[in-house]
Design a protein around this nucleic acid. Structure first.
Length: 117
DNA sequence: ACGTTGACGGATT
DNA sequence: TAATCCGCCAACG
């Protein structure tokens, strides 16, 4: 294998954005989850940066803060909540009902783990 | 190169 | 619940 690394993906952002795109309809994930699933535990901040930078075309509204709290501000925070409710996501006070809508990222979906269907 | 900023997270008070 | 502190790391000026 030639040229293994060296600029893996241009940025860790790319990885995170891919995870964001993986969040299905009616589900949500936290910044920490995105970063963790992307392979960067602790880089929750960068997950936010990734969205801030390239959230276009992605379900950015499905990404929330730890505990299900919407950290966005201004109209964006308002829109995010509206969108989530529109997808069937329920809220507990000011927070999303994580227990019911938290998306489970598969860390490493081992190859050929597909079961007979 | 340096310091500040930020859609963070968890713990503490 | 709110306010504060520290750790995390890339982008921005």
């Amino acid at each position: 294998m030639a040229a293994a690394k060296k600029s893996v993906d241009r940025s860790m952002f790319r990885r995170m954005l891919q995870k964001v795109a993986k969040v299905p309809y009616g589900k949500v994930a936290t910044y920490g989850d995105i970063a963790y699933a992307a392979g960067f535990p602790g880089a929750a901040r960068q997950a936010a940066w990734a969205l801030h930078s390239g959230g276009e075309g992605l379900p950015w509204h499905r990404i929330i803060g730890a505990g299900g709290k919407i950290l966005l501000t201004g109209e964006f925070g308002f829109e995010q909540r509206m969108r989530l409710e529109m997808e069937g996501v329920t809220f507990l006070g000011l927070k999303v009902n994580m227990a019911a809508h938290r998306h489970s990222f598969t860390p490493q979906p081992k190859k050929s783990s597909r079961k007979r269907g």
